[in-house]
Simulated scan of single mutants.
Amino acid sequence: MAGVTRRRPWLVWVLVALFVVVPIVEIWTIIQVGQLVGPWWTILLLVLDSILGSWLIKHEGSRAFRALREALNSGRMPARELADGALILIGGTLMLSPGFATDAVGILMILPFTRPLFRAALTRVVASRLTVMGAPASGLGGFPGGFPGGFPGQARREPSAPPGGGPVVQGEVVDRDHPGR
Rank of each mutant, 00 (worst) to 15 (best):
P78G: 00
A64V: 01
G106F: 03
R63L: 08
A71W: 07
G106L: 07
M95D: 04
E70N: 06
A67M: 00
A101H: 02
L89P: 01
R63A: 12
L94E: 08
R119T: 14
P78Q: 00
P116A: 09
F100D: 08
V126A: 12
S97A: 11
R115H: 06
L94D: 05
S74T: 09
F113G: 03
P112L: 05
T102K: 03
L89G: 11
S62W: 04
T114P: 03
L111K: 04
L96E: 13
E81T: 01
L122P: 06
G85S: 11
R115E: 09
M109K: 04
F113A: 08
P112F: 01
T102R: 05
F118H: 01
L89Q: 10
L72W: 03
V125Y: 11
L117Q: 12
G85Y: 07
S62E: 09
A71L: 11
A64K: 10
L96Y: 13
R76H: 05
L87Q: 02
F113Q: 05
A79L: 14
A71Q: 07
A104H: 04
L122N: 09
R76Y: 02
L111G: 10
A86Y: 00
L89I: 03
L117K: 10
F100K: 00
G85R: 03
G85L: 13
S62L: 04
M95S: 08
E70P: 00
L89N: 08
F65P: 10
I90Y: 14
G75M: 03
A79V: 15
D84F: 12
I107M: 15
S62H: 01
P112W: 01
M109N: 06
L117Y: 14
L117F: 15
L96I: 11
L122R: 07
L82Q: 12
R69G: 09
F118I: 07
G92E: 09
F118D: 07
F100Q: 04
R115M: 07
V126T: 08
A64Y: 04
G106K: 05
I88N: 04
L72Q: 04
L72F: 01
S74Y: 10
T123Q: 01
L111R: 06
S97R: 09
E70M: 01
L96N: 13
F65Q: 15
R69V: 12
A121I: 11
E81I: 01
R115S: 10
P78E: 01
L96T: 07
S128H: 15
S97P: 07
L72K: 05
L96D: 09
D103E: 15
D84L: 10
V105W: 15
L94W: 15
